[in-house]
């Protein structure tokens, strides 16, 4: 790689600096001050907006909060107990798991399909590659509005199609099961651009010699896919799975715009529940307990999945 900038300042200037500053090993003595200056800003920001709030959330989760949000009565783990005993919260947890699982599986499956389709060497394939990555430029509220229209009753595309084909009209967003399907489909669609870009990149890196060798041995395309492609892209698949998984756990915008957690709390996922309890009903103690559970689940899953898959993926 060429550099357009001159990498070093002029020698004279460098020398004058050198006189003032001890070199080499001695220089490391000052490293901690430099490190403090370089890392300081980041540490302050992370401290104020990530570490402190985590501790504060834990603290708040042990209290009842009054009508202006101040913690007043210490209740220990009672907020957690209330949650675990609440069928509504368990349902929210379960709905989140169903949603996350479906989103991860579908995103990866369709993502691999798109990537496989896009590595073909065909005329005009570049156009398809561009199209397949398009949803990466779609933000959450745009995706929600596009799909809201598709799923909306009577005027929406799906209901019109169903009506013209004399199929039963489904009330997508007002029937619990279908509403979940609707937000899963929308989420997967929104995820596809990103997933495609990564998986496509990984597929391109698989050396063609491996396929040639397999082809010589007469391996079927299915065998090639399972025994050459998949092992080769498994580190990338693992990365994508983790990113999608964590993203799905944090889903909020689509839910807020499309279903607001309904119908019958069917799409009331964990983050939405936190929002509801904290910012609609001012129940900060309980919402903090929900936040802690969410944080533990995400942190734990990230860690477990990382450790577990680390052993199984093939690193070249």
């Amino acid at each position: 790689m060429e550099m357009t900038h001159k990498p070093f300042p002029s020698p004279t200037k460098a020398k004058s600096v050198a006189k003032e500053r001890p070199r080499g090993f001695n220089g490391h003595r000052h490293d901690k001050y430099v490190a403090a200056a370089f890392l300081g800003p980041s540490l302050v920001v992370l401290g104020i907006f990530v570490f402190y709030p985590m501790l504060k959330t834990l603290y708040l989760s042990l209290f009842l909060t009054n009508n202006v949000g101040r913690p007043t009565v210490f209740v220990g783990l009672k907020n957690y107990g209330t949650l675990l005993a609440s069928s509504a919260y368990r349902a929210s947890f379960q709905a989140t798991l169903i949603y996350v699982f479906s989103v991860v599986v579908l995103t990866l499956t369709v993502g691999v399909l798109l990537a496989q389709a896009a590595v073909q060497k065909l005329a005009g394939i570049r156009w398809f590659r561009t199209i397949f990555s398009a949803t990466m430029g779609v933000s959450v509220s745009v995706a929600a509005i596009f799909w809201l229209f598709i799923f909306s009753p009577s005027v929406g595309l799906l209901d019109q199609l169903a009506a013209s084909l004399h199929l039963p009209v489904i009330n997508w967003l007002t029937t619990p099961g279908w509403a979940m399907v609707a937000i899963i489909v929308s989420t997967v669609w929104m995820n596809l651009g990103f997933t495609f870009l990564i998986l496509f990149g990984a597929l391109q890196m698989v050396p063609t010699t491996l396929y040639d060798a397999a082809a010589v041995e007469g391996a079927s395309p299915r065998y090639q896919f399972l025994h050459v492609t998949l092992p080769m892209i498994s580190p990338t698949l693992f990365f994508t799975a983790t990113v999608t998984l964590i993203g799905a756990f944090k889903s909020f915008g689509l839910i807020d715009l499309m279903t607001a957690g309904g119908p019958n709390n069917a799409t009331n996922l964990m983050v939405y529940q936190v929002y509801r309890d904290a910012f609609l009903t001012g129940n900060y103690g309980q919402a903090s307990a929900e936040s802690m559970i969410l944080a533990v689940v995400i942190a734990g899953l990230t860690w477990v999945q990382f450790k577990f898959l680390e052993k199984r993926v093939t690193y070249e």
């Binding site: 909306s152 009330n171 967003l173 007002t174 607001a260 309904g262 119908p263």
Partner: peptide, 8 residues
């Protein structure tokens, strides 16, 4: 049943 909320 038109459901709940502003959309309903």
């Amino acid at each position: 049943n038109y459901g709940a909320g502003a959309n309903a």
